[in-house]
Write a protein that binds this DNA or RNA. Sequence first.
DNA 1: ATGCCATGCTCCGCATGA
Length: 266
Amino acid sequence: MRIATWNVNSINARLPTVLQWFEEAAPDVACLQEIKCVDEKFPREAFERLGYNVETHGQKSYNGVALLSKSPMEDVRKGLPGADGAGADGEADDHARYIEALISGPRPVRVGGLYLPNGNPVGTAKFTYKLDWMARLNAHARALLAFEEPLVLCGDYNVIPEPEDADKPEGWLDDALFQPESRGAFRALKNLGLTDAYMQMNGAPGGYTFWDYQAGAWPRNHGIRIDHHLLSAQAADRLTGVEICRDVRGWEKPSDHVPVVVTLDL
DNA sequence: ATGCCATGCTCCGCATGA
C-alpha cells in the first residue's frame, strides 16, 4: 500500500503534470493539497479514469484538499472537529484544510490529508490561527490514536521541524514555518505517539519537499522539508519505504512542492 | 531592503503563498 501526499498548487493549473505523475507512480492513496477550487470544479473524471475513488473538500480560490483511493473509502470526514465552528478569535473557520477517510481493504488504514496554515507573518492573526489549527489537529490526532489502528496523517504541515530540514536554516528564523511555537506544536504531535516516516526510514539531511519559485531556489537547492507523513505505531510497524519524488520539481510547469510516498506492508 | 515566481479572481492589479 503506497500512500502519497502532494501540494499541487492548483489542480486545474497543474492537471497534465499531476496526471503524468499519477500514471507513472500509481499510488494506492493520494492526499492532495491546495486544489484551489470548489468541489464542482475538481477534475474528478480524470482521476476516476485512472481507477480512483475521489473525495474533495474544496474552496474557491484558496486552500482545498482532496483524497483519492483505489479502494473504497468509508467514514469520510471533511474539516477538523471544531474547524467549522469558531476559531480563537470567534470567527467562523471556513478554510478547507482537512479530509480523512478509512481506506477499506484486508487491513484498513485511516488516512488524514491536511494543509496546515502557513502562519506568516509572525505576530499577526495568521500566526495565531496556525497555532490554533495545530492545537485542533493535536486533539483530533489524540482521538484517532485511541482506536489503536493503522493511521497516517500526511500533508503540507508548513513546519520545518529541525535546522537539518532547511538548506539555509538561518534564512527561516523569522518565518512562521520555523518558529519555536510551530516546531513545538509539531513535536507535541509526535509526542502523542506519531512517527515521522522520513525520519524512521531515512532521516538524512536534505530530504527537501519544497523549493520556492523565486530567487532560483530550485537550481540552488534552497529547499525545505515541510511535507510529512506522521504514522501511528500500528502503521509505523509496517513502514517499509519513503520516497521523495524530487525530480518532479524539475518537470515542466511544476508545483513548488513535490510528491512524497510512503509504503506500508498492509 | 525589496522583489524575485506563480496562482485565481475582484481579472490588466490585487491577495496569497512559504
